[in-house]
Simulated assay, not measured.
Amino acid sequence: MFTPPYPIATPRLVLRPFTEADLDDLHAFHSLPEVARYLYWDARTREETKAALDRKIACASLEEDGDVLSVAAAPAGGGPVIGDLTLFLRSREHRQGEIGFVFNPAYQGRGLATEAAREILRIGFEGLGLHRIHGNCDARNTSSARLMERLGMRLEARLVENEFFAGAWSDELVFAMLAREWRAGAASVQPPA
């Protein structure tokens, strides 16, 4: 069983497991139609957010294929949960994972989602020893696509009219990164000795 060494501090954030105390913070952005626009759920009621939070609390470690690690992101020094990140263990045998992220739009445009998602990649590659991590998004979700590009993930595929989503056929973009690409990127941002 793998559990990250919480809390994980970045320059501006703290990543940690979700707790019951996060309900109001999570609902503040899970209830927004613009947040749910490209997700597989509609804007959530408080009860739906509570049910989702209960599932997230139960997803604190990875062991078997299909397990999900749910991670809350909050500002360093205190403040509300502003990000909801996931790492899916897709195949232990093939060392495959998938990343996901949802952020409060009130905190967008500051690089916080990139900072948090980079740590989820680090957990996958350095903590779990994954070989490949991918992320998918609706092609109309340019914010998510740009985030994955900023992370150094490369566009592997555009699946044309892959899903019937929100009443229309939509294209899906698949981004991915290999462990060797992660190591090369991590080495290139290390400060000189």
Rank of each mutant, 00 (worst) to 15 (best):
E48F: 00
R44F: 01
T3A: 13
G129A: 09
A186T: 13
A187S: 11
A52C: 10
L147Y: 00
W41F: 04
L151V: 12
T45I: 05
R95F: 08
N141G: 06
S70T: 11
A186C: 09
Q96T: 15
G185D: 14
T114A: 15
L128K: 06
L39A: 05
A76E: 12
D25F: 03
G127V: 11
E64Q: 14
I123H: 10
A193N: 11
G124C: 10
L121V: 09
A139N: 01
P7Q: 04
V189T: 15
A106E: 13
R55I: 01
T114Q: 12
L23I: 06
T19R: 13
S61Q: 15
C59T: 04
E20K: 10
G100W: 01
I99M: 09
V35R: 00
G167T: 01
R95D: 04
E93Y: 08
L89W: 06
H94K: 11
H30R: 03
E64I: 10
R55Y: 02
F29A: 04
T10F: 06
P191D: 08
N141R: 02
L53H: 02
H27T: 03
P33Y: 02
R90F: 10
F103I: 04
I123V: 15
A9L: 15
I99E: 03
L32E: 01
E149A: 15
M153K: 08
H94E: 10
R118V: 08
E93A: 14
D42R: 12
G66D: 04
Y6G: 04
A184L: 08
L62T: 01
Q108N: 15
R150I: 15
A73G: 02
G97Q: 05
A157M: 08
G135W: 09
L26M: 15
G78S: 04
Y107W: 14
R55P: 01
E119K: 13
E93M: 10
A187K: 12
L53Y: 01
A51H: 01
F103T: 07
M1W: 13
G109L: 06
G129H: 09
Y38I: 02
R183P: 03
F165N: 02
V35D: 00
F103L: 12
R110V: 10
D84T: 00
E115P: 07
T45K: 01
A36H: 03
V68T: 13
Q190K: 14
Y38P: 01
F175P: 06
A187T: 11
A28W: 03
P5L: 10
F2Y: 15
A9R: 12
L89V: 07
Y6F: 15
V189P: 10
E156H: 06
I133A: 01
I123Q: 11
V102G: 04
F18E: 00
G83V: 05
L173P: 00
F18I: 05
A187L: 11
A184G: 07
S188W: 12
Q190M: 14
P105Y: 02
S91H: 07
P17L: 06
N162G: 05
R16F: 06
I123E: 08
M153D: 08
G78T: 05
S144L: 03
C137K: 00
R16G: 05
